[in-house]
């Protein structure tokens, strides 16, 4: 077969279906703004990815909200309302419990938001491949996931706090004495959750995800000073030292320290420093895992 006999006839096919031809060439091709450097962030691509995540989250807002609220509110109801009203727990337990529950729901929401999506996108739909081909250094794709996860974690905190407060009724006794420290800790906790999700989502396969939640998240929660202040562990000196390795301890203590300053708690500056260090470590680990997963 010679080259001339190859059935190359774009004109012919255009004549047959003129209206369907790929005629979208623009007189002046759209040239996206510079941002073509290797490391610099391409805000257009980054924002578009964030917009996509917000769009998807908004579409499933109701189930997402129910999923976020159910577990913490059940906890608040049983331990904060039922147990205190029945006299099994003192009224003051309410202000110990609620900040811990807020921190915990931020942690689980953030981890789930990032890790479950990543596992889906890497292994099941592989849709992340499309984003990795966007004109942007691929690390930013991971950072975008972290930002989206942080947003979800913050929203979960912002929803659980007032909802739990309402549910427990009177004598919750929370105040907001140090709003700036509270916001800083909130951001650091959200970042911690999202970075944890990044590291886990890039390290664990689809089949092991259940194991991840039961083997890592449950012990982290139970030894995370969620349901009791750290000072309450003084009768268990070894455990009190060991739990210091658990970043959730600092999250719980920080939220408790800012919302219920009368409960004994760690110094806030320690909380902020440790959380910042933990966040930095996790994001570096997460990015490292992410690169390894993206590039073969």
């Amino acid at each position: 077969m010679t080259k001339t006999s190859l059935s190359r006839s774009p004109d012919q096919s255009a004549a047959q279906e003129p209206e369907r031809k790929l005629s979208y060439i623009v007189p002046k091709p759209v040239q996206p703004a510079a941002a073509g450097t290797q490391k610099g962030i391409n805000w257009k691509a980054f924002n578009a990815m964030l917009a996509r995540d917000v769009h998807v989250a908004r579409r499933s807002a109701v189930p997402l909200l129910l999923q976020t609220l159910l577990q913490p509110l059940l906890f608040v109801f049983i331990f904060g309302t039922v147990m205190t009203r029945s006299g099994l727990m003192p009224e003051s337990y309410k202000q110990v419990l609620l900040p811990g529950i807020v921190g915990l729901s931020m942690l689980t929401t953030g981890i789930q938001a990032v890790s479950m999506r990543l596992i889906m996108e890497f292994q099941f739909t592989r849709e992340i491949e499309d984003r990795l081909l966007a004109p942007m250094e691929i690390g930013w794709v991971a950072i975008e996931k972290v930002v989206a996860g942080m947003m979800q974690a913050m929203i979960s905190g912002a929803v659980v706090l007032p909802a739990g407060w309402l549910l427990m009724g009177r004598h919750v006794g929370l105040t907001l004495a140090q709003p700036l420290a509270f916001i800083a800790i909130l951001v650091l906790v959200a970042l911690f959750a999202a970075c944890g999700g990044l590291a886990m989502g890039c390290s664990v396969g689809q089949t092991n995800i259940g194991l991840l939640f039961s083997l890592i998240l449950l012990p982290v929660t139970m030894f995370g000073c969620v349901y009791y202040p750290w000072s309450a562990l003084k009768s268990f000196p070894i455990m009190q030292k060991l739990v210091l390795l658990n970043p959730l301890v600092y999250a719980s203590e920080g939220l408790r320290g800012t919302l219920a300053p009368s409960v004994p708690h760690m110094p806030l500056i320690v909380v902020i420093i440790v959380l910042a260090v933990a966040d930095t470590g996790l994001i570096m680990l997460g990015l490292n895992r992410f690169y390894r997963k993206c590039i073969s």
């Binding site: 759209v30 257009k44 691509a45 578009a48 491949e129 004109p135 942007m136």
Partner: peptide, 21 residues
């Protein structure tokens, strides 16, 4: 490797958005 959370049109539109169109 399509995005299962989006419609066909949204997949195209978001892809173009990544490229700043």
């Amino acid at each position: 490797n399509l995005d299962f959370s989006l419609t066909a049109r949204e997949i195209l539109v978001f892809h173009a958005a990544y490229f700043g169109i």
